[in-house]
Structures are given as structure tokens and as C-alpha cells.
Design a protein around this nucleic acid. Sequence first.
RNA 1: GGUCCCGUAGUUCAAUGGAUAGAAUAGAAGUUUCCUAAACUUUAGAUACAAGUUCGAUUCUUGUCGGGACUACCA
Length: 616
Amino acid sequence: MNFDLIKLVSPLTITPYPAYHYFCSMSITQQIQESVVKSLNELYPQGFSEKDFQINQTKPEFTGDYTVVLFSLVKSLKLSPDAIGNQLGDHLIKNSPDLFTAYNIIKGFLNLEINETYWLNLLQKNYNDVCFGKQAMNGKKVMVEYSSPNTNKPLHLGHLRNNFLGWSVAEILKANGYEVLKSCIVNDRGIHICKSMIAWQLFANGATPASTQTKGDHFVGDYYVKFNDEYKKQVKELTETGMSEAEAEKNAPIMLQTQQMLQDWEAGKPEVIELWKKMNGWVYEGFDVTYKNIGSDFDRTYYESDTYLLGKDIVQTGLDKGVFFRKPDGSVWIDLTADGLDEKLVLRKDGTSVYITQDIGLAQQKYDQYQIDQSIYVIGDEQNYHMKVLKLIAQKLGVPYANDIYHLSYGMVELPTGKMKSREGTVVDADDIVAEMIATAQQHTEELGKVKDFNTEELAALYQTLGLGAMKFYLLRVDPKKKMIFNPQESIDFHGFTGPFVQYTYARIRSILRKQSPDKSAAISAGLLPLEKEILLLIEQFPAAIREAARELSPAVLANYVFNLAKTFNSLYTEHSISNAETEEKKQLRLRLAMMTANVLQSGMQLMGIRVPERM
RNA sequence: GGUCCCGUAGUUCAAUGGAUAGAAUAGAAGUUUCCUAAACUUUAGAUACAAGUUCGAUUCUUGUCGGGACUACCA
């Protein structure tokens, strides 16, 4: 058997959904809500809305599918929960017999049983719909800025979380009908860039990535490390001559050289600019390889060397408006003490701009260029203060996009031993860890020996799919806002709550469907078994999960969702045969169930940037 | 000092104020003549502490203890 490489793994990027396609029917929760509101208002005069009660999925230990929590109604109705439950339950069944078939009340909870035909119709209508759960375009435009690398060192584990998160959030927003622009701001200038340039001049003897067979970003990063080593050495030498540490740090020759180089760069000195371009070029070649490998892409890349002068004119406007004030030395500030922050510099006394100045300028430029409705910045939580300042300044300036600035603040990735520290050499390199995951995928695959007929290319694609899938899932399964621990041992596990677990479930379904697809015209069986219904309930919640993921800007919602669905399907798979089902109608039901599960798993994984394999 | 964030099984993570706090992993015990055992089943194990708000608190409020981030005329 030979499989086409293209078809072996699922596509990564989502194609825009046709405008005519959208999930038109209301979710079951919404329908229940609506029915309950209607019933309450017909039964009682008080006047109720959806906010007056809660609908939950019924806990497995009770009979029923969805549950109305009655406590919140007790006070205004002055009736016991049981009395309300009985009246409401009767009324619901009488008025919507096609939706509700039975109810029971336990300790203030009204458990409702949903008519089985609802689930069967849902399945029959959508089992082959690969767009299930996605919304039509809503005309809103969002920019998601993520990745934002420095050109003095290679990407590390923290960047991976940023990249996977930014990319996934962009796809999730697309699935919710937004037009999304992915952007990247490259920090390509400044003192830290000059550090690696100086070190290269001093120590490289003309070496290049090509001459040393090193990936460009790693090559340059090595000189950044060399700078720090040399700097430390010089500081130590100076302090040994009796100089104070602070003085030594200021006067170390290599630091003086670096500062001179920054001035030369700003003055446009040709040989400095040339070196800068050359070394950044090496870094970009390296980044391109990494980005391509991990599946990051951008619609628009901004370079700080182009934007670092932006924002000065806005500062002038702010001065005129009295938002900013000038100190006697000529520097310009904003007073944010009333907002619980400090005074913040926006323009140096020499008239040059600082970090925040260019961010103000760039925000304005993005708005002018693209008329975006929302601007999401995927940046680590160490910059919470900075982003708060940015938004505050925008608000005080009264710019129209001020309230559309949103900082998607994600937590740091830490190791079991603590924070990653470049000085202590504990930084986990992005390329290394990805390669390690792919190698682990290869090792597992070879041990299991299930795809011995694959050719070299197919194997490479599979290892990539599995290794990267495991990595992405691991970094995305945690709530982005929270810091997370990266445990190298645990991360390479391909069992349990992992990407490969979901991929495996998908592959097993595809294996069945390759041999036999559902017969479109065939009847399906009524009388759903508990596991069959459980899967349908979960599938029905997929559109809601996509919406929630967008509302929370959290791919973790999808990771949890997809895992639960896969887990439940695996139980069904073990308990009940699909191909050799009890009856032909059962078989047709389960084939549809399998197909829809596979589609939803694929969509969900795709929204996290994870491909799913046909076989593994 | 100031501002902000976080404390849930041994470990890593869940839980719009709702029922007996879920998973995964590690531990223990099982499942392969049958659709892929990267799977499934069973088992044991946790809300830092103390008050408050209420029908009900992991969730909201306050305090205590513990951990972290930020607080540059760097970017």
C-alpha cells in the first residue's frame, strides 16, 4: 500500500470559509435557555431572562443530558426548588416535546433529557461537514502581533510558546469569522545587536555561518555569548585594579566599543551598516528555517530599524494637548501616578525616542495602514507594565484605536529547576528541542513498527507531524495566562494528554474509513448507547468550544476539548465494534460518528497548528 | 518600598458561584484468536492557612504565610 504524501497528513493553514457557510442552528444550550425563559415567563409574572438561571451539562451520575440549576429562582418566586422544578419540567415537556422527553429533580437541580432525534439529526446533517463549528466572516479585522525576535540570538523555548500561541490565536479568530493579519516586529537594532557585531569583529577572523557550517542565528548568537564572556573578563580585570564594579561595567573597553558602534550605526556609518546588514542577514536565514519548520508565518513584518523613529510627532501632539510635559532638561514625560503607575519617559533629553515612543508610533501606523478593529499583542507577562503604559498613553492621547489594544499576556516557560537563564546556559534552544521531539517520534514509530511500508519522505513527514504535534500540544494545553513548567522528560511523552494521543485516535478512525465510508442513503439506528450519546454531546459542543477559545484567546480550551473527545471515542472504539456492529443500522450510525469525530479532531488540531496523520 | 500575578493529588494541568473538585503522569491490578495496545478497564491519592459574603466558595472580599514578575534617558 502506498499513500500520497500530500494526503498523508492534514493541511495546516485554514482556508477561508465560504461566506454562505455558517453554523446557523443554535446550540442545544441556547435552545434550552430560550425554552426555559419562555416557560418561566408563561408560568410566572416576575419576568425572567437567560441571566436568571444556569444551564450545565448533567453530571454522569444522574439521568439526563442538561441541567437547570433552580436555586437562583427560589428567592424571586418564593417557591421551593422542587415545586419550581416540577412546574417548569412539565411545562417544558408540554411545550417542546420535540426537544425534551423527560425530567427529574434532585436537590434543586432540574435534569432534562433531550429528545434522541435531536442528536441523530445533528449527526445526519453534519457528519461529513469539515467546516462544522466555524463562523462566516463578520467583517472585523484583527491584527495579531507575535514572535518578535531579537536578531542577536536564536529562538528558545519561550519563543516557541509565543509562536504557537500567536499562530493558533490567529487561526481561532479566523474560525470565528474575523479577518486576521499576523504581524511580527523584529528587534533588529540597538545595543544588544551591536554586542554580537563587536564580538564578531574581535574574535571571528572572518568566519561565517557557511565557513563554519553553522545555522546563521546560532552563529550570531555564539558571538553574543562571546561578548558577554569577554565583558565579564574585562570587568573582573578592572575591579582587580581597584575600580568599583559599577565603574568597571561602564568603562570596560568592549562596552565602550559597543556604544561607539551604536552611535556609528545611528549616524549611518557605511561599514557599520554593512556589517549590521550582513549579520542580520545570517540571522534571518536561520530564522526562516526555524519558522518554516515550526509553521510560523506572517502577513506583515515590521523592523525596528524602520520604526524606531516613529512616534516623535505624536509626542509633539501630546505635548500640545498637555498629555505630556517637558522637564527642564528637555526630556518629555507622562505622569501616570494618578493611574497607580509612575512618571514615564517618552522622549529623551537629546530628542531621541525610547521603546514606548516607537510602540506608540507603530500602533498608529498599523491603524492607518490596515484600519484594524483589534490589535492583539502576544507578549510575555514580564511586559505587563509596559503594555499597560502603552494603552494608557493611547487612551490619554484620545486616539481612536486606544481601546482596541489588547495585550495577550502569556506566562513564562520555566524549567523544573527554575527560570531559564542564558548566563547559566539553561536556555532550551528552539531548534534543539524541536529536533529532539522529532527524533523521539521516530524512535517510538520504529519501535512500534506499524508503518514499515512508508518510504523515506513519508516517514520524515510523519515524524515531523508527530514530534511537532507533541511539542505544540504540550505548550498550548496550558492556559496561556499562566506560567508553565517545561519538564523535558514529560514533554517527550507520547501518551495521555498529548498531541500524539489525539493523532492516534484520528489515525485509527481513518483506518476504518479507508475501508468503508458511511452509506449516505442508509438508515441509522435509534436507541443510542451511553458512549454514542456522550460523543454526540461532545461534538455538539465543538462550535461553542471554538467560540470560547476566541473569547478567552486560549488554544488550551481546544486542547482540552479535543483530548476529551478523543478519549471518549477511544472508549467507544474499545467497547463497541464499528465495522462489525450488531446491526447494519448501528454500523451506519457508528461510521458517521467516527467520521464526524475525525473531522472535529482534525479541525480542532488544525486550529492549534497541529496536523493529523492518516496512519501512524 | 510600590504595582501586579500565582499557591489544587508525589508531579504537570482542569473546573462561566453549583451536585460526590476532573484529567494526565508516576504507583498498584488487569485487558490482544476481533476495526492500529501510541489504546482500554479498575484502584489509591489534592483546594496553603484563617475569617467574611450566601441556599451554596477552588472560584468573590479581607488578612496571614509562601513563590514569581515588573518598577532603565536598554530594547
